[in-house]
């Protein structure tokens, strides 16, 4: 099914992309039905889509791994992968930028205007008399009812430490890989994976605490909206990163990668660092100030 084009590898047709499209469509159809609670069809379609997507991912990446092991790739192909991963991460940065921008807008502009600051004098006087601009805010209608916030120096600070440590452990693993120290590599990676999942565990605990004890929910006005949107999407990315790390770990245990050829490892490491940096931003603007 494949052919080496000069030294640049050009695969000859692949069924996986179309399988991917079908899976995305199923997921989306199921997603809409789930959201609009239209019976069981939502769950069935969504589940089916997720299964097809998983099959596709294994199929596609499996093919890539086999080609890589078979030595079809050269340095130039490797560079294409690197460029692509870098730009993919840039697109993720922009995705988060939209939500950080939203938080900024709410804190610096919309809530103060509603409270009568800046250009908002009339807005406040005629529409929302008595509303004062303070952050955190769930808006002039007190949407979702009174709530408490999560302080920065509890779980969030611990989580910061966890992610920072995991950044160190993965770097350690990387150095080990480059020096061909397989045991250190596996230990370092395993530690990173463990830290990643521990972070998620704490995050979930924090959400449960927020919902059960603090009345801080998605419905808690703009604070709840931005809080859960930012931390939620971050958590989702940590989940993805941790899963990818797990797969890389398994591949390392199986003896994949060599000291000078391990792009997949590096890609996941980049991704993990990106998730890490986003968290630092979150920690500062969502929890701390």
């Amino acid at each position: 099914m494949s052919q080496t084009q000069g030294a640049y590898y050009v695969p000859h047709g692949s069924p996986w992309p179309i399988v991917g499209s079908v899976s995305l469509t199923l997921i989306v159809l199921g997603g809409v039905n789930l959201i609009q609670s239209k019976g069981d069809s939502g769950l069935i379609l969504f589940g089916l889509g997720a299964i097809v997507l998983t099959v596709m991912l294994f199929g596609w990446f499996g093919a890539v791994i086999n080609e890589s092991i078979a030595g079809s790739y050269n340095e130039q192909v490797d560079r294409s992968f690197r460029i692509s991963m870098a730009w993919f991460i840039f697109s993720e940065v922009m995705f988060f930028a939209a939500f950080f921008g939203t938080l900024f807008y709410a804190r610096v502009l919309s809530v103060p205007w509603l409270g009568g600051e800046g250009d908002g004098a009339w807005t406040n006087a005629l529409l929302w008399p008595g509303f004062e601009s303070i952050w955190p805010s769930n808006g002039p209608e007190n949407v979702g009812g009174a709530f408490d916030t999560i302080g920065a120096w509890g779980i969030p600070a611990i989580n910061t430490a966890i992610l920072l440590t995991s950044g160190v452990t993965i770097t350690w693993a990387h150095h080990a890989l480059k020096a061909d120290k397989r045991l250190q590599l596996i230990v370092g990676l395993a530690a990173t994976v463990a830290l990643g999942f521990y972070f998620l565990y704490l995050q979930v605990a924090e959400y449960i605490h927020a919902y059960q004890d603090l009345n801080l929910t998605l419905n808690s006005g703009i604070f709840g909206s931005t809080f859960f949107m930012l931390t939620g999407f971050h958590g989702f990315h940590v989940t993805l990163g941790a899963l990818m790390l797990t797969i890389i770990l398994l591949r390392c245990i199986r003896g994949h990668f060599s000291s000078n050829d391990h792009f997949a490892f590096e890609a996941v490491a980049w991704y993990w660092h990106f998730v890490d940096v986003v968290w630092l931003g979150l920690f500062v603007v969502v929890y701390w100030i």
Partner: peptide
């Protein structure tokens, strides 16, 4: 039930 674009919850349609 979020309030990104709803003034009642502190958001803004203009956002």
């Amino acid at each position: 039930g979020t309030s990104f674009f709803d003034a009642a919850g502190g958001g803004d349609p203009v956002l």
